[in-house]
Computed example of a mutant assay.
Amino acid sequence: MLTGRYQQGGFAIGRTSPRARVFVNGVDEGLASEAGYFIVGFDRDAEPQAIIRVVNADGEASHMAQIAPGDFDIQRIGGLANNQVNPTGEALLARIRAEAGRKAQGFASRADLDGFKTGFIAPLAKYRISGRFGGQRVLNGEPRTPHYGADLAAPAGASIRSPAAGVVAFAETGMHFEGGLTMIDHGQGLISLYLHQSRVDVRRGEMVSQGQVIGAVGKEGRATGPHLCWRMKWRGRNLDPTLMVGARTPA
């Protein structure tokens, strides 16, 4: 049984027997939770079809998901410091490499949870979408990779809430590109990220509940004004976190 948003950057949430094994396009993506819940993410550049298959002791079932193309724009941002677009200097490059290594550890988190099963709330009480997920980025006139987050403009200091339960997989301030950065593992490789924070209120390994304040909006790192860049990954695939708001699991 599946529900979800079948589009590039979307997802499917399913329920099956406890600890059934889940495959996507023939690749083993782990086990369903003790309650039988599982999640599958469709990358920003996902192919038009995805075969979701679950296997347990009694047999297997599969579903061919038809993935609609995303609606992506072009986002032009100017006025950024050059070291935020084309960083140079061995000390800065070494710092960026070290930060990338620590972030990779956060992305590798695989908590045995199903925090996604209650659905997601927005991380801010009030905001304006200033940058949509998936748009082609042009920074200081230079074309770059797509923007894998949703930018939510809000006043500096506004409280950031955890959209769903999970465990903190990463929490640091002073990151070169991200400023204050928090990652939350909601289970089965679903990681949400919160960038440019002026304050980080949680620690790595801490369990958080839905609605719990985890930090505050800022403009740290590569940013031109106060906002929250909200991102989400599922096992390396880039998802649109706004599509998760209001998601519900099958009964």
Rank of each mutant, 00 (worst) to 15 (best):
R76W: 01
E220Q: 14
V22K: 08
D71A: 11
L181W: 01
V167A: 02
W230Q: 03
A216C: 04
R97D: 14
Q105G: 12
L93D: 08
I129G: 01
I52V: 15
G179V: 00
H227R: 15
Y194K: 00
G119Y: 02
R199G: 03
G119T: 10
I184T: 12
D114C: 13
N86Q: 05
F72Q: 00
P163T: 07
E60A: 12
R235F: 02
G218N: 06
F133R: 02
A251E: 15
R137K: 02
E206C: 06
Q212T: 12
G36V: 09
Q188F: 06
G9L: 02
V138I: 15
C229L: 05
V208Y: 09
G135L: 09
V168C: 09
D201R: 14
E47H: 00
G89D: 03
G134D: 08
P48C: 06
D45V: 05
D28S: 08
G101P: 02
Q105S: 10
E206V: 10
R199C: 01
E220W: 07
A61E: 10
E172F: 10
G189W: 00
L228W: 00
T145R: 14
L152M: 14
G79F: 00
G166F: 14
H147Y: 07
L92N: 13
T173D: 13
N82D: 14
S62K: 13
G134T: 11
F38V: 10
M1K: 13
D71M: 11
Q75K: 10
A94Q: 13
F23P: 13
L2S: 08
F120Q: 08
V168N: 07
D71C: 07
E60S: 11
P163C: 06
A165W: 00
A46P: 05
S130Q: 09
L93P: 13
T145F: 09
G70V: 01
R53L: 13
Y148A: 08
P146Y: 03
K233R: 15
H147P: 07
D240E: 04
D151I: 10
A104Y: 01
S33Q: 03
P250C: 04
Y127V: 00
L228E: 09
H63A: 15
L80Q: 02
Y6C: 01
V245E: 09
R44H: 05
D112T: 12
G131Y: 12
G9I: 04
A111E: 14
A104P: 07
L139F: 07
